[in-house]
């Protein structure tokens, strides 16, 4: 039961009949969804509703967990990423991810950024990677704060800075899509605000899908919002419409705080 969002922009990710089981636990149930390009799409819903599991299907992070079974299609730019001829490494290269807890590597800020692009052969050491570090950190709004200590460890930054470093690290691989799994739930309000305004800037160049517990966050940042309940997609619409005039009783109960 859902009303599909009226799309005014081209579709970036088309999800069709997606199911996911952890062993016998049917965690994601038959999701059909079209995620528009260069927009922020928020996934909300109570804990255990399958929104994070769903998010991890989009860059095949669930492949790594034992006893997980997935069927259905996730079509990105016209290609199902679960097709046999698709390499999950190539998928994750194009679809970046930012996690709930900031997780910089125990390396320098500089190396945090350049690690993956160097291994992917996207840049060479020296001037190219210097430029990449500056560009990525600037996009993540972190350049001015860290430009004088690029070689100190990434873990020496504050929590909010670490999370922006993680975003810069994801951007450095030049993905088209960035998935964010509750990116600010571990941060203070000021850092959260910085992350949110960063997301709005990044929307220009990236398709962003964010899982959040925080309905205000979805309201403030997302163009479209999807409400998940018990593994099902209950409602998916423009954020404004979903919050002002939810089409489903379940959605209304959730956003008015009757449960959560």
């Amino acid at each position: 039961m859902k009303s599909s969002a009226r799309q005014t922009t081209p579709v970036k990710i088309k999800i069709a009949g997606l199911n996911l089981w952890y062993g016998d636990n049917h965690a994601v149930k038959g999701i059909d969804m079209a995620i528009p390009a260069n927009r922020i799409t928020a996934l909300i819903g109570p804990s255990g509703c399958g929104k994070s599991s769903f998010l991890r299907c989009i860059n095949r992070m669930n492949d790594l967990i034992d006893h997980v079974r997935i069927d259905g299609q996730v079509i990105v730019d016209g290609k199902n990423i679960y097709d046999n001829d698709v390499d999950e490494i190539a998928v994750r290269k194009r679809i970046g991810m930012v996690f709930q807890q900031p997780n910089p590597f125990p390396k320098s800020i500089y190396e945090n950024i350049t690690y993956a692009p160097l291994k992917h052969g996207q840049v060479r050491k020296g001037r190219e990677s210097d430029a990449l570090v500056e560009a990525s950190l600037s996009s993540a709004g972190l350049w001015n704060e860290v430009k004088d200590k690029l070689h100190s460890p990434g873990t020496s930054l504050s929590g909010g800075q670490q999370q922006r470093l993680c975003i810069a690290r994801a951007i450095a691989v030049s993905p088209d899509i960035i998935l964010m799994d509750e990116p600010s739930s571990a941060l203070d309000p000021i850092s959260t605000e910085k992350i949110e305004s960063l997301m709005l800037e990044l929307r220009e160049n990236y398709t962003i899908v964010i899982v959040t517990h925080n309905m205000q966050q979805a309201h403030r940042t997302a163009d479209y919002t999807a409400y998940f309940h018990l593994g099902e997609l209950v409602e998916y619409d423009e954020t404004k419409k979903l919050f002002m005039n939810p089409g489903q009783q379940l959605t209304e109960d959730y956003i008015t705080g009757r449960f959560g």
Binding site: L64, R94, G96, F99, F105, Y115, A116, A170
Partner: peptide, 8 residues
């Protein structure tokens, strides 16, 4: 997870 999500 951080490394895998970067396509390593």
């Amino acid at each position: 997870n951080a490394s895998l999500a970067l396509g390593m």
